[in-house]
Design a protein around this nucleic acid. Structure first.
Lengths: 194, 194
DNA sequence: ATTGACATCCTAGCACCGCTAGACATTCAA
DNA sequence: TTGAATGTCTAGCGGTGCTAGGATGTCAAT
């Protein structure tokens, strides 16, 4: 059965290549430039090969989104644990900064996660693990500043929504550039109960 | 010169028809369904007529966005002035509710304003008047709860971003349905200084 | 009234999109 | 050696935004 195993391995490699290439292309030229033709050309296969791995373009976006969610969770935990000894206030600030930083550095991935339709289920039973984990990473740090009598999950949702709003409006040019840091500080000041 | 005036009037009418039809179609079936062919068919003209009014589809989206911004400003002012005698806290709550309500009732228009590319300039010198006015409507009510030493404009940006995050994440199914009201209350409780 | 210039509008078509049917080659078990 | 199964490709479908160029109508000047 070694032959079959090798084939499966090669298939898995190619699938990762597709996702990585889609992501790269999206970061370089935006998601509009990620067409099945261009993507196929870049991986040096024909278009139908894409459809032997994914049901369609939307699933490819979904795959990039999952990859991004896992990375975001890692980045958030890295930031908060780096500020572990500095009290909840500093941890929340670090969390917010890390979140906004991720959105700014990986705009296409961020879009795949929250802006585009990747066919993923959110806030439901069959929500993929990386997405739940990303939310969990937020919850871990935010739970301790939710305040008395406030449900930590609800508080996390609100905090997350605020960060998401800042991230998207900033990047879409809807907010003046330059004050990003001050806005983040104000948000943490007000929302977090320390 | 009356003939020419009549023609200009008719042109203006047709332009409004295009925008209204695009909006209607978008609200009924989503922006994906708003193709130049379908739009042309609905207004009972051929496709090229659209391009004698707008440079392209993006400008049509932009026109819908401007219309929406004006309506949003009206809705926000109506809500706050209805709660005029109830203190700042009640006014801000009414404002937040009105904003989220508008986003929920007019999803396609909201998308045109903040999600899609309508080719509009935001937060710049040549920002169209309706957009500035929409922000102004927020600012009027929020300025009095910005808190000491906090720039009202900056505070409004943060508050707006939070509302925007709630609106988009809720509608995209990224947040559990049903708790929308509690999230809005929490947001007002924390952000507004009363 | 006729003519010519101008404005208006439509038909037809471009290049591109996501996606798929069916032909072709290759690989493997009988 | 052969037949089936697997893998990949070419070619094409119906759709998209957008536009060139021709047809039609309207007007002022003769």
């Amino acid at each position: 059965m070694s032959v079959q195993e090798r084939k499966e391995r090669e298939r898995a490699v190619r699938e990762r290549l597709i996702v990585a290439t889609a992501r790269e292309l999206a970061e370089q030229q935006g998601w509009d430039a990620v067409t099945t033709r261009r993507l196929a050309e870049r991986i040096e296969y024909s278009q139908p090969v894409l459809y032997s791995h994914f049901r369609g373009k939307r699933e490819i976006i979904g795959a990039v989104a999952l990859e991004g969610a896992a990375e975001l969770a890692v980045a958030l935990r890295a930031a908060t644990s780096a500020a572990a000894g500095e009290g909840p206030r500093a941890r929340v600030t670090a969390l917010a900064r890390a979140y906004l930083d991720f959105a700014e550095r990986n705009p296409a991935v961020y879009d795949a996660m929250f802006q585009l339709d990747g066919g993923l289920a959110f806030a439901e039973e069959d929500t993929p693990e990386p997405l739940k984990d990303g939310f969990a990473a937020l919850l871990e740090t935010l739970a301790e500043v939710a305040g008395e009598g406030v449900h930590p999950g609800l508080f996390t949702e609100v905090f997350w929504a605020a960060l998401h709003g800042l991230a998207t409006l900033t990047r879409a040019g809807r907010l003046p550039t330059g004050d990003a840091e001050r806005r983040a500080e104000l948000l943490v000041d007000r929302l977090a109960v320390v």
